[in-house]
Design a protein around this nucleic acid. Structure first.
Length: 648
RNA sequence: GCCGACAUAGCUCAGCGGUAGAGCAGCUGUUUCGUAAACAGCAGGUCCUCGGUUCAAAUCCGAGUGUCGGCUCCA
């Protein structure tokens, strides 16, 4: 069912709002990206295996896989040196390199302030200036343990103990470990490092944040300092510029500026859609409805408030009941639906289905509510109320592969409307899976066949499927190179079919189980819109722009002609307004530009005389050549551009 | 949910124990203008909420709510 708005990356980025920034995102993503590139010419998909969170492997992996990473990791050491210098009681966690920079986790006697970061940076500079050599020392395991114990570094001791426990379990001798020392600082570390602190490039500390020790919310919360470091000032500047750029594109900021939506504390995590935002919404929804009708879908609508027994039957209650909004009614427990899927089965089962009826494709734009923990909410990308372009497709087992192939094509077409290229990730059976393993194998095989047949490169994420189905997740890279998870396609042979006892009658008159394919292509419309806004920096393509054209009369005597022109455009379906304020033309242009209106139509004496308008495109250079077009031609041209869903 | 920060006019922000400020937006009037800001005037606030300290609180303290940066979670 419903795919959720899941963020692409597991760990924290150094970048602005972090998540999704490939350029500033967790190192775990970098190999993945390369893998994606590598598979472009080959059939064998790259398998993405990340070390388990909080595992010894993860703790020991400092991320130093190339020279730049080694420098980043070395900078983390220098930072730890500075912190230890300022706070001798500091307990060190781990300090790996990540994409774009590094972090180090500390347990400190008090919370750090921005002033502290400056002081830490100061000392780091001194250490870099001193150009201390990094010296590796191989140490006998027991010696290492007593050294760290003597230093009172409990977290380091814990890492060593885990290492020992693992060696013992494997029947191996205690491993030899290494320390890296530079100047006064020494840290248990596998390396590698740069030869000396003087080789560290320009760096900057970015932020402090809480982080659980070993990623476990039951363990102590440490203070994590994020920093960035590059080989040259130029690269550092570029990184900081990109962060600033991302901030400017922030959909929460643009949403207010463009008057699309707002948030209010009476409904945390739920957007209030303003007229322009709703128009944008309806445009996307309309395009999807058009396309899905072409592809044989029918639309359904099911209740929002449903009895909890439905979720007990589907298996969600035990896993996600804390995340559902409950409503007590006459002693019975109901919940606001967090997904559409189980309810579509009631429509499926409302009559006997023949093998000839399948596939049956039920689309549903249902309002969903999920009680996300308060700290996780974030603009439109993580909300409590959202609507998906959801669908549940019931097919015969022999139709699965063809239907998935059709969906891959559907996804490519839809993302093409925005100039985006989807990337596919195949997520297989997770540990908490329900249902018959044989069914899982069959579903996975069919997905794999469809992916292989699609000709698109894809990656595999083992054990990342949902509890009831293997799936294909679709990712895109936006204009700033950030990665976002978007659509999802799930082949469910178990949950809906078995738990809701679905059947169709085959050609021999025997009842059979259908397969349920869950899919959403935009995903949550809320989230999709947020990502679109950031990708286009608010300058949405003509066909999606809530306001497509503004008519700008130069003076009041051109107003009447302006209204006539607007009428002609509106008759062709163009979303157009006339700026009838008494601002000067210059200011009207500026305001339209600020509102990111794609087309400005200037009307003065010359134009009115000729029943034409001078066209100024959003973002046009100040000295751009100007084209004057007759009203009727203009209406034709713009309508054609909209119909073609052209992306600038 | 956890750690930390923040919350002042519609928006962006200043003020940080002693009568609440600016720019933009809004309103009124003047202006009718050729490609990114015409001019003048007026109006606009439970300084997030509740409680405390104080002669006096936007300002200091506590609790709550929301938002932001992360962590965890994400059907």
């Amino acid at each position: 069912m419903e795919p959720r708005e899941v963020e692409s990356s597991a760990s924290r980025p150094v970048g602005t709002r972090g998540r999704f920034d490939s350029w500033s995102s967790p190192m775990a993503d970098a190999p993945a990206r390369q893998a994606a590139a590598a598979t472009a010419d080959h059939q064998e998909p790259e398998v993405l295996e990340a070390p388990e969170r909080g595992s010894v492997e993860e703790l020991l992996d400092a991320g130093a896989h190339d020279p730049l990473d080694a420098m980043r990791h070395s900078t983390a050491h220098v930072m730890a040196e500075a912190v230890l210098d300022l706070f001798p009681a500091a307990k060190l966690g781990i300090g790996p390199a990540i994409d774009g920079g590094f972090y180090y986790d500390f347990e400190l006697p008090r919370a750090l302030t921005p002033d502290d970061l400056e002081a830490i940076e100061e000392r780091m500079r001194a250490s870099v200036a001193a150009d201390h050599a990094f010296v590796r020392r191989e140490v006998d395991f027991d010696d290492a343990r007593s050294v760290e114990e003597g230093r009172g570094q409990a977290f380091k001791v814990e890492i060593l103990d885990d290492l020992a426990a693992r060696a013992k379990a494997a029947g191996e001798p205690l491993p030899e470990v290494s320390f890296y020392e530079h100047g006064p600082f020494s840290d248990l570390c596998r390396g590698p490092h740069v030869p000396s602190t003087g080789m560290i490039g320009p760096f900057k500390l970015l932020s402090v944040a809480g982080a659980y020790w070993r990623g476990d919310e039951k363990r102590p919360m440490l203070q994590r300092i994020y920093g960035t470091v590059w080989s040259s000032q130029d690269e550092l500047d570029q990184f900081l510029w990109r962060r600033a750029e991302a901030k400017k594109r922030d959909h929460r900021r643009l949403g207010v500026q463009l008057d699309l939506f707002s948030f209010h504390d009476v409904a945390p995590g739920s957007a209030f859609w303003h007229p322009k935002g709703q128009r944008l919404w309806r445009t996307l929804e309309g395009a999807m409805r058009e396309e899905q009708e072409r592809r044989g879908y029918v639309e359904v609508s099911t209740p929002i408030l449903v009895h909890k027994k439905l979720w007990e039957q589907s298996g969600h209650w035990g896993l996600y009941d804390d995340n559902m909004f409950r409503v007590e009614v006459e002693g019975q427990t109901f919940s606001l639906k967090p997904m559409n899927c189980p309810e579509s089965t009631f429509i499926y089962r409302s009559k006997v289905r023949s093998y000839r009826d399948l596939p049956i494709r039920y689309a549903e734009y249902g309002r969903l509510h999920r009680n996300e923990r308060s700290g996780t909410l974030s603009g439109l990308t993580r909300v409590r109320h959202f609507i998906q372009d959801d669908a549940h497709i019931y097919v015969r087992p022999d139709q699965v592969q063809a239907e998935i192939s059709e969906l891959l094509d559907f996804v490519r077409v839809v993302y093409g409307w925005f100039g985006l290229t989807p990337r596919f990730v195949f997520a297989t059976k997770p540990d908490k899976a329900i249902g018959d393993p044989a069914l899982w194998e069959r579903a996975e095989a069919q997905i794999k066949e469809a992916l292989d047949a699609s000709g698109s490169p894809y990656r595999v994420k083992p054990r990342d499927g949902t509890f009831y189905a293997p799936k294909i997740d679709i990712y895109i890279d936006d204009a700033l190179g950030r990665e976002w998870q978007m659509a999802t396609i799930q082949a469910d042979l178990t949950m809906l079919p078995d738990r809701f006892d679905l059947e169709f009658i085959d050609e021999h008159g025997l009842p059979q189980r259908p397969v349920a394919i869950h899919r959403a292509i935009y995903g949550s419309l809320e989230r999709f819109i947020g990502i679109l806004i950031e990708h286009f920096a608010g300058a949405l393509p003509l066909w999606v722009a809530p306001l497509q054209a503004v008519v700008i009369p130069i003076s009041d005597r051109h107003l009447e002609a302006g209204r006539e022109l607007a009428g002609i455009l509106a008759a062709k379906g163009i979303r157009v307004e006339v700026d009838d304020s008494d601002n000067r033309m210059q200011n009207k242009i500026r305001l339209a530009q600020e509102q990111k209106v794609p087309v400005m139509l200037v009307l003065g004496d010359r134009e009115v005389e000729a029943r034409s308008a001078t066209v100024r495109r959003r973002g046009a250079a100040r000295d751009a050549a100007q084209e004057t077009v007759a009203w009727d031609d203009l209406a034709e041209q713009l309508a054609a551009e909209v119909a073609a869903r052209r992306v600038e």
